[in-house]
Structure formats: C-alpha cells, structure tokens
Design a protein around this nucleic acid. Structure first.
Length: 289
DNA sequence: CGATACACCTGTGTGC
DNA sequence: TGCACACAGGTGTATC
C-alpha cells in the first residue's frame, strides 16, 4: 500500500516529533510482523536518541545514537501513528492509564518517547517488517542492497533509465514496479505516471523511444512530487502520522477509474482494466500507446 | 540471469 | 442475514 510518497509523508510527519528525542520504552505486543522482530529490540531501542529519520525507497530509516539504524517497512497496511499524552494532573494520569490499556487489535509495537509521546505501529495484514542494523553498513542490508535509483534523486535520469531498461523484454509496467530497477514506485504511481506520459502499461521496454522515456522520467517525478505535497494517497488504510488522510486520491487520473472517461484533454477514451500478474492495471487504450 | 507463480495476512465488498 | 469468493497500496522465495 504505502508507496514512496506515503512513506515520505510519514517521514516528514515523524521528523519533528522524533528528531533528537530519546526512546524511553518499547512495547512489543507480538513477536513478529512478516518476519520475527529484531532480537532484543526493546533493549536495543531503550535509552537511544533518534539522530535523524531517512528514507530509502519504501523503507524508513531511524538513525539511532547507538550506531544502529531501525529499518521499518509498512507493507500493505502498516501505519505509524503519533499519540501525544499530556500528563498534567491526576485526571490525565487516569486517562493515560486507561489509554495504555486500550490498544487496538492490530497495534503491534508501541514506542514511547521522552515527553510522553507514543508512536504506534499498527498493521492488520502484518506484511510490514522491522530490523536493526549497523548504521555504517546500512545500505548493505539485504532489504536495501539491491535497490535501484531513487526516482527523485539526481541518480535518476533518462540516461539512467535507458541503461536500466537496456536488454530487457518485459513490459514497462513490470519494469517500473521492479524495485531493483527503480526504487519506490508501486501500482498506483506507476499507472499514474504511465497515463501522464501517454505510454501503455503493456508497451515492451525495448520499443520506447528516447523522447518518450524522457517524458516518462519527467512524469514519474512530477507525480511523486505532487503526491508528497498532498500527503500521499489514502484509498483505505493509509493515514498521516496524526491520523489525517492524504489528499492525492482526489488527484488520481486513472487508478480506480475503471469505465470512466479518460481525463486527458481531447481524449474520448474510457479507462479500462487489465490484469498482469495478478495485479490490476488501469489505463486508456485510446491515448496510451 | 529474467520472468512468473506463489506465499505471507486480514478486512471489505460483492453476488448468490 | 449468511456464506463463499475476489480483491487490496508489497516483496521474498522457489521454480522454470
């Protein structure tokens, strides 16, 4: 679910709350998410300060004062939510106690930060994952070491994309979803970018001109930037850290618009769906070639 | 190596 | 109302 813009939205939301703050307690309400949680996670987090929060692809990287980095992936349904507890008097102390007893079914990990703030990791499907790894070698971690360029960094360009796609035979949609070719795109933003660029998801990568690839690079970056600026896309599960929805779902041009009129200027087509490898593509066969 | 099928989970919506 | 089934933003692994 959360693609690059959603993960970046979470990062930006957590940064002012966690940067240079000390973790005072970590509650684990189950031993695993998609995989087992890191060994002794509580002990390795307690008393550590969050120096910074970075992002690589769809992974959040919490740089800790211990020399380790906490890696978090939200999977399909993961959320990080901030709860601010203000303990001022006896009444709030009582409500604080009540709230701590009142976690939801899928609140799996609760990180308490100095000052009474809690970060809750909630994930119904548990496709998310966490790990702790030495910060100095963080990019060698098995979840990160094969990732392609960040689409919003200067390592990504038409030249880079041409090189990445060279000698491939797959269709462009499959290629753009492949994290080792380009990092951070998922089903929504791949389809939005392809619509914007006028390229069919089924177009074989070896039959795309340089000019078209140039347009595609531009469209990918434009869509991602626009989505980040609106706090990501909330179709179902995604929330910003304060619980607010993102707003980019109101700007989607093809995703989820099956049977509706294509929004491209002067295009008379209708949005169709096709299945690739178990994943739905939305596109307009009239203006996407 | 590249492409594909499947697995991991729960919640929700649809059709009967 | 109940039940079966399809489907959902992701990604590692096994297989050819």
């Amino acid at each position: 679910m959360p693609e690059l813009p959603e993960v970046e939205t979470v990062r930006l939301g957590l940064l002012p709350i966690l940067k240079n703050k000390c973790i005072v307690k970590c509650e684990q309400r189950r031993p695993d998410l998609r995989w087992p949680l890191p060994e002794n996670m509580s002990d390795r987090l307690n008393g550590k300060t969050v120096n910074n929060i970075m992002r690589r692809s769809k992974y959040l990287l919490f740089d800790l004062s211990s020399g380790e980095t906490l890696i978090v992936h939200l999977g399909m349904s993961g959320r990080l939510l901030v709860i601010r507890d203000e303990i001022k008097d006896v009444v709030s102390l009582a409500s604080f106690y009540l709230k701590t007893q009142n976690y939801g079914k899928h609140d799996h990990i609760i990180i308490h930060v100095e000052g009474g703030t809690r970060i809750i990791y909630n994930d119904p499907r548990r496709f998310g994952a966490m790990d702790l790894f030495e910060t100095k070698r963080i990019m060698q971690h098995k979840w990160l070491n094969h990732l392609g360029p960040e689409p919003l960094s200067d390592t990504f360009s038409t030249q880079a994309l041409m090189k990445i796609l060279k000698n491939r035979k797959s269709c462009i949609k499959t290629a753009l979803l492949d994290q080792k070719l380009i990092a951070g795109l998922g089903n929504i933003y791949v389809l939005e970018s392809l619509w914007e660029a006028g390229v069919s998801p089924e177009r074989p990568v070896n039959r795309i001109s340089k000019v078209t690839l140039e347009r595609l690079v531009f469209c990918i970056q434009r869509v991602l930037r626009a989505a980040i600026s609106l706090g990501g896309t909330s179709l179902k599960d995604f929330r910003q850290v304060g619980g607010d929805l993102g707003y980019f779902q109101n700007k989607l041009k093809v995703y989820g618009r099956d049977g509706k009129k294509c929004l491209k200027l002067n295009c008379s087509g209708r949005i169709k769906t096709i299945k690739h490898h178990g994943r739905t593509s939305f596109y307009c066969s009239h203006c996407q070639k």
